[in-house]
Computed example of a mutant assay.
Amino acid sequence: MRSLLKFGRNIGAGVLLTISLGGYLADLTVNAAIFDRSGRKIPDREVNSERVNWQMLSAATDRKYNGIGVIDTNYGVCTGFAIFTGANNLRAPAYVLTNGHCQGRFRKLPTEREILVDRSTETKFTVNYFHDFKPERLTFDVKRMVYGTMKNNDIAILELNVTQGELLKAGIAPLQISSQPPAIGEPLIVVGVPSEGVKEELNFLHAATCKTGELANVKEDVYNWQQSIRHQCSIVGGMSGSPMISRVTQQVVGIINTGVNDSASKQPQCSLNRPCEVVKNNLVQTFPQENYGQLVDRIPTCFDRSGVFNLQQSTCQLERP
């Protein structure tokens, strides 16, 4: 579950330091793997170079991604994105999806067995996070976290203090979540706001491309995600919670959550910032060239016909407390 969450409140001017994940949050500098345009892993220190396989998005040409923005938790920032809940009820609440590790209690994460439901939060969500967006960006208060966990997944579903209708009227485009997991080799675009080590003038929406790899059983500290999506899209701190969008269907098939930090190379395998894979015979192995995401296909089953999140409805496949 790598610290792709980035510390700091000043999201307009970049942020200062990063947190570690697991129990209480520690002051660590972390990134996930970045790659060049030939698919080769390059050192984290080259995050500001033109070699990195990603591009900064523009409000003029990439408006369809304007609902992907910054989650400000008061103790750090992540990426999150507005989601379409499957109904045309404009009075339904607007919802945002991000990582569970972006929504723990102040400076503390959910435990590996914890499922949080209907929790208050002081989180804010800022959209139109393009480098060339001229009007003032829109910031919404999060009314509550309706669901959050790091048990077997790393997701948080946030209810905004506006309706779907109000979100659409503001011109914000929610993303649709696929009801099917991605196929191996499916082409992806990952869109998020990189922060860790990134120059201020680059701290805006970026898009990275790659393909989905095989599912892996990933362990990091006390957390275990048995169906993690391998991928080699360039990811750095601040991009936790970024959508993994199929370039075939244009639907979200996963959510970014972790990867191996270069500076953690001497740490024990499976420790914080150095996730490992559980392979044959319960042996573990670290793959520094892999980043990981989590499946999201069960999330749509928990929204009712009116577009309201309902963990108790019979169709809901998310794990309950």
Rank of each mutant, 00 (worst) to 15 (best):
I11F: 09
K124W: 07
I177T: 06
H231A: 01
A32C: 11
Y95A: 08
T315F: 00
G213R: 03
I155S: 02
L311W: 14
L25Q: 14
T79Q: 10
I256S: 06
Q227G: 00
S3N: 03
N203Y: 05
M145G: 12
N88C: 06
D72N: 15
F130A: 08
N152M: 04
S49F: 12
S58L: 09
E200C: 01
S314L: 08
F303L: 05
V193H: 02
T126Q: 06
I19Y: 14
E201P: 00
G259S: 11
A207T: 00
G192D: 09
I42A: 14
G148L: 06
G241P: 00
T286M: 11
I245L: 02
N153H: 07
K134P: 00
S306W: 02
A216T: 01
Q269H: 01
H206R: 09
R91I: 01
G165Y: 06
K143D: 08
R37Y: 09
T111F: 11
N203K: 03
M239F: 08
A87L: 08
V191P: 05
P93S: 04
I157L: 12
V162L: 08
G80K: 09
K211L: 05
S178V: 03
S120K: 14
E201C: 06
S179F: 11
I71T: 04
V190E: 03
V218C: 06
V198F: 04
L28W: 05
V30L: 15
S228Y: 04
Y223T: 02
V278N: 05
